[in-house]
Simulated scan of single mutants.
Amino acid sequence: MKNRKRMAHFVMSFLLSFFMVVNYSAPYVVLAQDELADVPQPDSATDTSDETEPVLSEPAVAADEESESNALDSSNADLEEDPTALMPPEATASTETAKPLEEDAQQLTRVYVSATSGDDQNDGRTPESAVKSLEQGLKLLTSGGEVYITGAFDLSQPVSIPANVHVVAYENTTMSTTSNINGLTLSSGSTLSTINGAALTMTGFKYAIVVNEGAILQDGNYVMGDVTRGIYLLGSIQGSSRAGLL
């Protein structure tokens, strides 16, 4: 009986002590929360905790890599079909215009000059589209070639024939001056001839034809009238004999 009373007394004492502890500790808990409420909180505008970069999942990364690979394969395929696809527009244009210029230079190896019926606005490719002056005919030959001449030329200054150019009088041709100048001067590597029985008549010149060293005067009909000296020869005469010179 005494033991039961002691037990009951102990239980009551324990419950009373527990109630007092809980009852007195509650204000301190509330006070702690109030103190936390007074602490300045970070500004939401400067909070960067949520600004972390998203992490792509492995399937998404794989999909991007596959898409990029497909794009490269497509570009390579287009480049194989059209090698100029990646070239700048101006580079493509220059390659397109280069071919016609090269073809013109290759085709224009003979120019026709007619002092009687020619026009320096013509292209000089045929007797019908002949240019008028020897100077223009020589300009049209960019890499040497033949200049076929005909008609009556009135020269006010000497005409120098550059290397790799062959002047041919294919029809009767006359050259004259009133300025007491030299007529045709053949540079080294150039040639002068007449064909088809045509004659080249030179009148009024100091030296009608100057043949420099390395130049060739081929056999032909060369008529000298009222000149100081017909031919000044430093180069060579090519043909059967000098009898062809009139």
Rank of each mutant, 00 (worst) to 15 (best):
I231K: 14
F153C: 09
E35P: 00
T142A: 05
A91R: 12
G118I: 03
E213Q: 10
E128N: 03
A26T: 01
S49K: 06
G244W: 14
R242N: 15
V55E: 15
T126S: 08
Q106P: 00
R110A: 11
S117N: 15
V11Q: 09
I181H: 11
E102T: 04
S25F: 06
A115M: 01
D119Q: 06
A93C: 08
L233H: 14
S69F: 01
T142E: 09
L192S: 06
K206W: 01
G220L: 00
M202I: 01
K2G: 13
V29G: 04
G145C: 05
V21E: 03
T109K: 05
A199T: 01
M20F: 02
D64Q: 12
T109R: 02
A169G: 13
P42S: 00
E51F: 15
T203H: 07
V21L: 10
E65D: 14
N196V: 06
R4N: 06
D73R: 10
G189N: 14
S44N: 12
K99H: 03
L134S: 07
S69Q: 07
L15M: 04
P83N: 01
H166C: 07
A199G: 01
N3L: 03
T116E: 12
A71W: 08
G220T: 11
P40S: 06
E51M: 14
D154I: 01
V223Q: 12
N180H: 15
R229I: 09
S193V: 13
M7E: 06
T92A: 06
G145T: 00
